[in-house]
Amino acid sequence: STGEEYIAVGDFTAQQVGDLTFKKGEILLVIEKKPDGWWIAKDAKGNEGLVPRTYLEPYS
């Protein structure tokens, strides 16, 4: 699937089932941008889950 690459600007630990845990500096592939501010993203290992958009910045 296609998506946009974003870099994590902080650590995030999953708070509920379906969230994706990530560390600062990780590159995430954003698959869907939901209007509530929680985006669906995939990490380098292929894990998929919800992430808070405030922790992400476009990666170029």
Rank of each mutant, 00 (worst) to 15 (best):
S1H: 02
S1K: 14
T2N: 02
T2M: 13
T2Y: 02
T2G: 04
T2H: 01
T2L: 07
G3P: 14
G3K: 14
G3H: 04
E4C: 07
Y6W: 07
Y6F: 07
I7V: 04
A8K: 00
A8Y: 01
V9H: 05
V9S: 06
G10L: 12
D11F: 03
F12L: 11
T13Q: 04
T13M: 08
A14E: 05
Q15P: 12
Q15Y: 06
Q15E: 09
Q15F: 07
Q15L: 08
Q16Y: 02
Q16K: 15
V17G: 11
V17L: 05
D19I: 15
D19S: 15
D19E: 15
L20M: 12
T21S: 11
T21F: 09
T21N: 15
F22G: 08
K23F: 05
K23I: 04
K24T: 03
E26L: 02
E26V: 06
I27H: 06
I27Y: 11
I27L: 06
I27C: 13
L28N: 01
L29R: 06
L29P: 02
V30L: 09
V30T: 03
I31E: 08
E32Y: 07
E32W: 03
E32F: 06
E32C: 09
K34R: 09
K34F: 06
P35E: 09
P35Q: 10
P35L: 10
D36L: 10
D36W: 02
G37M: 10
W38F: 15
W38E: 15
W39T: 02
W39H: 03
I40S: 09
I40D: 10
I40M: 07
K42Y: 05
D43G: 08
D43K: 08
A44E: 12
K45M: 05
G46W: 07
G46K: 13
G46A: 12
N47E: 10
N47L: 10
N47M: 12
E48K: 11
G49N: 01
G49A: 03
L50Y: 07
V51W: 00
P52T: 11
P52F: 13
P52D: 15
R53Y: 04
R53I: 11
R53S: 13
R53H: 12
R53F: 01
T54F: 04
T54L: 07
T54V: 13
Y55S: 14
Y55L: 15
Y55T: 14
L56E: 00
E57K: 07
P58G: 08
P58I: 05
Y59R: 13
S60G: 04
S60A: 14
